[in-house]
Design a protein around this nucleic acid. Structure first.
Lengths: 338, 338
DNA sequence: GTTAACGGTGCAACCGGTTGTACAACCGCG
DNA sequence: CGCGGTTGTACAACCGGTTGCACCGTTAAC
C-alpha cells in the first residue's frame, strides 16, 4: 500500500485548534494590527502544530493574484540558453524574484502553436505580469497583453512602438557601449579600425555601430564593417576574410567576446600580436573575456542587473505603479588586449 | 491616459447574457451531456460575444488543480542548458505538455535558498505534479514530496531508493546502450579497446561501463578506462594521455559524442585514421555526431521521447494512476567511424 | 388517468482563503 | 451611572468557477 495522502490542513482547522474564527486566524497569520499579541501567539502555535501552509489556489482567488510572472521568450530553448547573454539575464530575473514570493515561468513563443498557448494563459489571467525578453514590433501577443491590461515589461529598446505609455521598458544603452569601445581605441591612438559585428538586423548591433561611428568617423570606413554571427567561429572566419583583403588596420571592434576570441586566434595565426600590432575590444564581458590570451578589454553590459530591474519593475507594476523606462549603463572593462 | 483596464467577463455575465443560470452556463461550456444542444449553442454564442475565458484562479480552486507541473532541476540554469542532453529532454517535456492545458515550470534547486523556496511552493500545493530531472538519493525535497503526496516522476535510475512504490521513474537503459556499442566493436573484430567516459560518479557512466564489460570482458582492461568530463576538450586530452602510453589499441568507446569528436581529432593529429586504424563509437547521437568526419557511429538515447514519457506519466498520476517505472531503449546508429 | 422515467435546468453548497462591517467588552470620563 | 471611544473578535460576503441534488415539465407505460 502506498502511504495514505494526508490531506492538507486548512485555515478552518487552525482556527478550530486555536479556538478562534477563520477570519481571526487569517488576520493573525498575516500579522494584522487588529489582532492582540496573545491571540497571534495562540494562532501561530496552532498553525505550527498542524503544519499549516496556506493553499496557493485559495489565496490566489481571494487576493486576485497568482504570484506567477511569465517570462516570454521568442527563441527556442536551446538557442536561448546556449547564448550566455540570455542565460545571465534570466538568472537576474530569477534571482530577484526568489526574494519575493513570486515564481517566474518561462513561456516559449517561437511557434504559432506556442503563441496560441501563451495567449490562452494570458486570457485566463494565469500570470500577474509578463516580462518580454525579446520584444518585437507588431507582436500580436503584445497587443493581447495591452488589451487585457496585464502589467508588462519589455526588455530591449523598441523604437516608436505604440505601447510606450502602457508597458515598461528596460534596456542597456548600446550606443553608449559603442562610444566607450571606440573612445578606448581612439585614446590608444588606433586610426584604422575594423568592426566584426553580430547580425545586421539586430537592433543592438545597429546602436553599437552608431556609437562607434560617432567617435571614429572615417577611421571606421563602411568597407571595414562586417556583419556575422555571435560565435568565435564567426569571428575567426570574419578575421580571415579581412586578412585576405590585405588592408591596413590596427584595431578590431567586436560585437561579442566570443567573436573577439575567434578574431584573436585568427590574428595570432597570421603572425600578428595582440595588442602590440592590433588592439581588440570585445563586448559583453562574459567569462570568456577574462580567460582570453591576452585578457580581453571589453564593454560590460549589466545583464544581471537588467534582470533584477525588469523583475522589480514587474513587481511594482503589479502593485499599481505606472509604466517606466529605465536605461542601464555600459562600462568599459580595461584588460590587456588594447 | 492609459487605456482603462477592462475587467474580465465572468461566468455570471455569460449566464445572464444567455438567459441561463451560472451552473448551466458552466456545464454548457464544459460540454456536459446533461445540457441540450440548443442551450449549449446559446451559451457558447454568449461566451464568444462577451469574449469570455474562464479565470485560471477560480477554476484552480474549484477543481483542486493548478494545471501547473514543476520541473525540478539541480543544476544551475547555465549548465543545464549548455548540456544538449538536458535541453532536449526538457524540450520533450514541454512539447508533450503543450498538447494539454498544463504549464511546465522550471524550478531550480541548486542552492539551499532555492530548495527552501521550492519546498514552500510544494507545501502551498502550487503544482499538480513534479518531474525531477536529476534526482539523487537523500534529497530532502523528495522526502517532502512524498509526505505531501505530490505525484512525482523521477528521471534517472535511483538504485534502491525508498520511493519505489510512491514515485514513478523513467530512465534510459544505459547498460543496454553499453551492450550495443560494445557488440558493434566486437562484430567489427576489434580486440583492444579503450574507453573514454564521463565522470566516475555518474550513474549512467557506471551502467554503460557494465554494459561494455559484459560483452568485451578482458578486451577492455581496467587500465584502459579513463574517466573525464563530457566535452570534446576532455576527449582530446584523454586521447593524448592514451597515445602517450604507447599501448596497442584498435577501438575507442566514448561516453558522449563530444568526447568522441575530441578523440577523433587527437587520433588524426597522431596520424591514425578512423576507422581504418581505430574504430570510434560515441554516445547520445547529438547533432555533432552526424557532422563528425568521419560521421560518428553512436548510441542514440531517446531523450525527447523520455521527456514525452515523463510528462505523460505525470499527467496520468494527476488523474490518479499508480506509480510506474518505464525504461526507454537505446539504439545503435551506424555511421562511418566503426 | 395516474405514475414512473427521464431529460433539462436552477438552487445552493463548495473549493480555501481574505476582508468590510457589526458587535461585544472594556476603558476612562463627566 | 451613562456616555463615547478604543480594542479584539466573529459573522458573512466575496473571489470565480464546479457540482450534488432537487425540481420541473414531458413523454411513455400501465
Amino acid at each position: 500500500m502506498t502511504q495514505p495522502v494526508r490531506t492538507a490542513p486548512t485555515l478552518a482547522e487552525v482556527a478550530a485548534a486555536a479556538g478562534v474564527s477563520r477570519s481571526t486566524a487569517s488576520r493573525a497569520l498575516n500579522d494584522s494590527p487588529r489582532i492582540s499579541e496573545e491571540t497571534k501567539r495562540r494562532v501561530r502555535a496552532a498553525a505550527k502544530e498542524v503544519n499549516f501552509v496556506p493553499n496557493a489556489r485559495g489565496r490566489a482567488l481571494a487576493v486576485g493574484r497568482t504570484e506567477i510572472i511569465a517570462v516570454l521568450v521568442t527563441e527556442p530553448l536551446s538557442e536561448l540558453f546556449s547564448d550566455p547573454t540570455y542565460s545571465e539575464f534570466l538568472s537576474g530575473i530569477t534571482e530577484e524574484l526568489s526574494e519575493s514570493s513570486y515564481l517566474p515561468v518561462i513561456l516559449q513563443a517561437s511557434s504559432t502553436h506556442e503563441r496560441n498557448r501563451a495567449r490562452e494563459h494570458f486570457e485566463r489571467r494565469s500570470f500577474d505580469a509578463v516580462i518580454d525578453v525579446s520584444p518585437y514590433k507588431g507582436s500580436e501577443l503584445l497587443e493581447v497583453l495591452r488589451e487585457l491590461g496585464v502589467p508588462t515589461v519589455l526588455c530591449g529598446q523598441l523604437e516608436g512602438h505604440p505601447y510606450r505609455d502602457v508597458f515598461s521598458t528596460v534596456y542597456s544603452d548600446d550606443e553608449e557601449g559603442g562610444h566607450f569601445a571606440a573612445l578606448a581605441m581612439k585614446d590608444r591612438g588606433r586610426k584604422d579600425i575594423v568592426a566584426v559585428l553580430g547580425p545586421q538586423d539586430n537592433p543592438a548591433v545597429v546602436d553599437r555601430l552608431r556609437g562607434y561611428r560617432a567617435v571614429l568617423g572615417e577611421d571606421l570606413p563602411d568597407a571595414n564593417v562586417i556583419y556575422t554571427g555571435w560565435n568565435s567561429g564567426d569571428g575567426y572566419q570574419a578575421m580571415h576574410q579581412i586578412l585576405a583583403r590585405e588592408i591596413a588596420f590596427d584595431g578590431v571592434l567586436c560585437g561579442s567576446d566570443r567573436i573577439a576570441a575567434g578574431v584573436i586566434t585568427a590574428l595570432n595565426e597570421a603572425g600578428l600580436s595582440v595588442p602590440a600590432d592590433v588592439s581588440v575590444v570585445g563586448f559583453d564581458d562574459h567569462e570568456i573575456a577574462a580567460r582570453c590570451v591576452p585578457a580581453l578589454t571589453t564593454v560590460r553590459q549589466p545583464l544581471r542587473e537588467e534582470g533584477h530591474m525588469a523583475a522589480n519593475i514587474a513587481l511594482d507594476m503589479i502593485k499599481g505603479a505606472e509604466p517606466t523606462t529605465s536605461v542601464m549603463h555600459m562600462q568599459l572593462i580595461q584588460r590587456d588586449s588594447l
